[in-house]
Each structure stands twice: as structure tokens, then as C-alpha cells.
Design a protein around this nucleic acid. Structure first.
Lengths: 353, 353
DNA sequence: GGTTTATGACGACCATTTATGATGTGGCCC
DNA sequence: GGGCCACATCATAAATGGTCGTCATAAACC
């Protein structure tokens, strides 16, 4: 590999001058600059990021940890993260933690060793050691989507309100037996969406029925399994609220297999609004999250915590950003008697279907 | 940040000894080892990967460049890459090139600057500058899925044979007007699958009809658009072969919207066998690729090219691995008169549906 | 007494950045 | 015209945090 010394020698200048040219600093005569650039080109020189990082104490590298890249929800967030990071001159390392605390920790340690400048993290649902690691090392970081530590910057969607909206929609259609397929209860996201479910039932003075709630893991097969169990109930639900779209897809699949028509026999509502929600057989009614925005904002917050010159937001208090989510009504929940109202809907009388 | 010197001082040993302990070398007394490890723990010391990489000339970091993470095909390959890399003590940086040559080049340059040890690359379909960059820099690399340069290690599926299998299946069912939704013709994968399509037609002495071939971009919307165009033909096809599953999903969507029943009025076959293929309304018949295996083998080949001690496979000739693909028959192609035969099927007489 | 083992001390090296200081040039003032 | 100063331009050398090899030393073992 050619080094900065090779370039300096070839160009007849000192390494300091080459460095100045490469870093776009002032105080270099135009001819010298040209000469250096020409040699750089000619030798195909690329500066060594390791040595650079060592000297500058910055790598211009961020990490984005996600629990499951095969869930299309995350790539959309990732795009927001990437665009914002690139715009600020950073690159992003994407790491898949498989929703396992062990893997999450290993990755974070490897990244720490490599001296990344910061991390955006969607923590694993259960037993994340991220808060401890972050506090121990002082690595600038922002958490996304899941709320696991009040002392860390966090960007999330308004899950309670989103779930409530979805439920009010179903309730407004006249449904009274509404099931829920939740995420793992260790996940704050899952808990909040369940809370929205309960609140909406309470508003309508419908008793909470534990039999109508099954726990999934945010993956499609668990939605499928959960729906089968719900359909096997002596008195099956007329509507189901799934805590994310992938599980809603699984639920649609189960219904179809059992010959249960959606939305005629069963209304289905999801959460996230992934691109596929528009591609299902009856298009999926779902609660849309500002995914791209969430990624973008996460990086914005993160950059404020990275010194870079005048240690600005260093001691800033932890921020919590809660982004609005909004219901997107499609075909999987049929509108029968009342139109969807954005605000609480008075309880309808009969059953919707 | 604490350095190795801090540890050495605190433990009352030399930096050499600390280094020996950390690198698991022999010739360290158990008590000394314990003492050092204890201080490391206590100080929360993490060695500096930058300094380390600089000294050892290795980062134990690989990159995996993919054109589109939102296509579920790629995460499955990624898992194979990641598992194989981790098993060998490497970490993987995942980069999304958006199928744009510009972004691909920028990423590769940034990775080169950071002195990654090697790269697994699914090159962009059009105008990739990867071969030139690789040859210029000597970075160990393996190409996946797309065949763009005979001088570089490449792992791919047998696209021609896969497409032929899919077509023979449709032909065996009696279909004679079979359309194709191809990928971008600049992509070798797309060209090869189209070649399989043509070969199978030729076997059955069916003339190639350009009107029945539309070009997509491997994304779902293009499959949707393409299918609409095919259905608008004066004499629409009775079957369609999509060059990947995402476009097949789009095709299913278009058919459903036009009231065309699948498989009764239209048989649909895809390519890839992504997880979603089992979750569509009529389950999708498709050609399965060994995705995980492709990723795993790519890394295996790559590791052979990374010196690490005794520059083994350095001058080895470029390898080409072609993995078998196999047809998975599901509901979207109805089997009517003949069962699927694994080998060439004699042309049937009547029409299948 | 010779060999093996555990460790320290030392220094070269990895490829940069950057503070500091040297050099040269020109302008300005007297 | 000479001396002085400011300033642009560039070189030198010291970090940055490790690895690794050589050599020395001391103790233990045979």
C-alpha cells in the first residue's frame, strides 16, 4: 500500500503538506496543491482510515443495530438513518442482532473496539445490556422504537395513541369481540400497544377478556399461530388487532386457510404500515409510523451528542421524542355503518357485520 | 480512554505482558494473567482496534454489499454471510447500494480507506465499477448472485436451469402462451433467467413472442405494472414467469385487481423462494435458490483469499460456483393433467386450464 | 552447569495529524 | 537602500495506541 510518505517523496514536498492538501486546509500554494493531487491520482493513493482515526480520535462511522432485518419495517428506518448520516459525512454500519441480547452485546463491544463515533440502536426486546454498556463507555447513542431507559435519548412512535386509534376504528364499526395479537410482553412497544388496546376497550366499557389476547414475537409465523388459536375459540372474535404488520399478515394467512373471510367475517388491523400492507389480498388497514423520520431524527439527536470540535450537546439532558402515528384504513377492516372519526367515536349499537 | 499503558501500570507489569495476555499467547504465568484480566475488568479497558489494525495490518472486518435490503431475498443471503464470517472471527458491515453504481463505488472506497480485510459483493445491475476497483486495489473479494466478471470469484445460482425448470412445469401443464416479467436486461441474473425461458420454449418449438416479455426491475411495483400490461394484451397469456418473487407478488396483486383468478385463469411462477412466497393468497410456485448457502460459500471462498499468516490462496485462479436451484410447486400454478416431471416433459396437447 | 520458562525493558513500526518553528518573500518605513 | 516585520508556505517531529521481535534477567528444573 502506498503511504503519505510515498506521495510526499514523489511530489517533492513534506508529508505535512500532503496532509494539508488532502484535508482541504488553507495555506497551500495552488501549484503545490495541484502537484500533490496529481501524484495522489497517479499513485492511486488512499489514506489509511485506521491511522487517521488514531490521530484524530474520530472515525466518522456510526452503527445502526436492528433486531431483525428480515422484517421490512427496519430497512425503512435504516434508510432514514443512512441518509441523515451520509448528509453529515458519516458512514453507517448495519448490524443485525437477531433480537438476542448476547449478540447485541457482542456487536456493541466489537464496535466500541473499532471506535465508532456513535450508535443508533433498536434494542432487543428482552434483557438488553445496552444501557449499561453505554453508560460504562460514554459512547454517544440514541435508542429507537423501544423505550427501555429513561436516561437515554429515545425516539419512538406514539404506540398507545396509535393502538387506541386502531381500536376506536374497529369499535366504531360495531365490533365488540376484538382480539389482540401482541408482541413479546418484554418489549415496551408491545406493552404500549396493548395498553392502547385496553384503554379503547375501557372507553367503551367493554371488559378486558384475557382469552382474546395472544402473545406473538412480531414475526409472521407467530401471527399465523396466534390467529389459529383465536379462531379455535368457542366464541371467536369478529376483529383482531395485531401489534405489527408482519403478524397481521400471518393472521390474514390463517383466516384464509380456515375459510374465514376478511373483512366480512373478521376485520384485521395491523401496525407499522410496511410496504407490503398494500400488497396483501385484502389490503391491510394499519397504523402508520413515521419510519424514515424516526431514523432521521435519531441520527439528528445522535449528532448533537458527538463532540466534533466544540463539545456542544455533551451534558444535555436525555431527550425523548414521541412521533405521531396515524391510522390508514384499507380493505381488511370493512367500514359498515359509521365512517372513521379521528376522535373518539360513540359506541355503536349493533354488531358491524 | 484507558490505554494498555494504564493497564500495565495498574497491574504492575509491562505492556508486553498485557498484550500477551490479551492475545492469548503462551508463556504467561496464571497469576499474572489473572491480575491483568482483573485490572482490565476494573478499568473497563477495551483495546483500540484502530491502533491494533494499524500494527497488525488486519481489521477482522468484512463488508457485504447488497443492492436492496428491502427485498427479503437479501437478508437471507446476509445471514449466511454473517454466520460464516462470525464463525471465522470476523464481523460484517452491511451496506445497501440501492442498485446504484455511484453509491456502490462510494461505499467501496470508504471501506477500502477503513482497511477492511475483504468484501462479499452483490454488484449493482448496471455499470458496476467494482471489478476495476478490486483489481486496482487488490482487495480480496467474492461476487454473489450476479455474473459480471470472469476474473473474479463468483457464486451464483443456476439461473438458466432454474428458469427452464419453471417453464417446463408450466409447459407440462399445457400452457402455451406464457409471458415473462424479466429483471433489468443489464443484469446477468435477469438475462440468464430469460435465456432459460427461451430455451424451454425452443424445446417445445414454441416461437418466442416479444409481446409476451416485459422488463421489470426486480421490485414489486414493476411486477404489478408489467402484469397489468400483459393482461391488457389483445390475447393475454395463460401463465406468467416472473424473474423474481417480489415481481411475482406484484403480478398476483395485478391479477387480483383485474379479477383474474390465479391459478384458474392465470398461472404464476416466481424465482427465489423468499419466505413470503408461502404467505401469499394462492401460495406462490417458485424456483428456490440456496440463499443461505450462497452467502456461506461466498465467505468461504473469500477467506481463502485473505492472507492471514501463510498467504495461501493468493494467486489462486478465479473460481465460479454455480449452485443448483429447484422448483417448489405451490398453489399459484395449478397442476391439471400431468404431474411435474423433474426432467424434460413431452409437450402436452391441450391447454391446461 | 545448562536448559527451559516467565517476564521486563526497549525500540522499531504501523500511517496519519498537528503543533511548532524555520524559511523566504515582499512591503514599508526611515 | 537597508532593516524590520508580517505573512504565506512548508518541514520537522511528536503524538496517537497498539504489536512484535530481540535481548536481558532471573528462577526453576534436570
Amino acid at each position: 500500500m502506498t503511504t503519505i510518505y510515498d506521495v510526499a517523496r514523489q511530489a517533492g514536498v513534506s508529508v505535512a503538506t500532503v496532509s494539508r492538501v488532502l484535508n482541504g486546509e488553507a495555506h497551500v500554494a495552488p501549484e503545490t496543491r495541484q502537484k500533490v493531487l496529481h501524484v495522489v491520482q497517479q499513485l492511486g493513493y488512499r489514506r489509511n482510515g485506521l491511522a487517521r482515526g488514531l490521530a484524530t480520535r474520530a472515525t466518522r462511522l456510526l452503527a445502526f443495530l436492528v433486531p431483525d432485518i428480515s422484517n421490512p419495517y427496519f430497512p425503512e428506518v435504516a434508510r432514514g438513518v443512512e441518509d441523515a448520516a451520509n448528509a453529515a459525512g458519516y458512514h453507517v454500519i448495519l448490524c443485525n442482532t437477531d433480537d438476542r441480547a448476547r449478540k447485541e452485546q457482542e456487536y456493541l463491544e466489537a464496535l466500541l473496539d473499532r471506535r465508532i463515533d456513535g450508535a443508533v440502536i433498536i434494542p432487543v426486546a428482552e434483557g438488553s445490556r445496552v444501557p449499561k454498556l453505554l453508560k460504562g463507555t460514554g459512547l454517544p447513542a440514541v435508542l429507537l422504537d423501544r423505550d427501555i431507559d429513561p436516561e437515554l435519548d429515545t425516539v419512538m412512535a406514539d404506540n398507545v395513541a396509535g393502538a387506541r386509534q386502531a381500536m376506536r376504528h374497529l369499535l366504531g364499526l360495531g365490533h365488540r369481540r376484538i382480539a389482540a395479537i401482541t408482541g413479546p410482553t418484554r418489549s415496551s412497544t408491545a406493552r404500549e400497544r396493548l395498553e392502547g388496546y385496553r384503554q379503547a376497550l375501557a372507553e367503551h366499557e367493554i371488559p378486558f377478556d384475557p382469552d382474546l389476547v395472544v402473545e406473538g414475537d412480531f414475526r409472521r409465523p407467530s401471527g399465523y399461530q396466534g390467529m389459529l388459536r383465536l379462531l379455535d375459540l368457542p366464541q371467536p372474535p369478529t376483529a383482531v388487532f395485531a401489534a405489527n404488520d408482519m403478524m397481521a399478515l400471518g393472521a390474514l394467512h390463517a383466516a384464509e386457510e380456515r375459510g374465514v373471510r376478511v373483512p366480512e367475517d373478521l376485520a384485521v388491523v395491523g401496525f407499522d404500515d410496511i410496504a407490503l400492507a398494500e400488497a396483501t389480498r385484502p389490503k391491510l388497514t394499519t397504523v402508520a409510523q413515521p419510519k424514515y423520520e424516526m431514523g432521521r431524527l435519531g441520527v439528528e439527536l445522535l449528532l448533537q451528542r458527538i463532540p466534533e470540535g466544540g463539545r456542544r450537546g455533551q451534558g444535555r439532558r436525555p431527550q425523548r421524542l414521541v412521533l405521531e402515528s396515524r391510522l390508514v384504513v384499507r380493505q381488511s377492516s370493512l367500514i359498515v355503518r359509521s365512517q372513521l372519526a379521528p376522535e373518539p367515536v360513540p359506541a355503536a349499537n349493533g354488531k358491524g357485520v
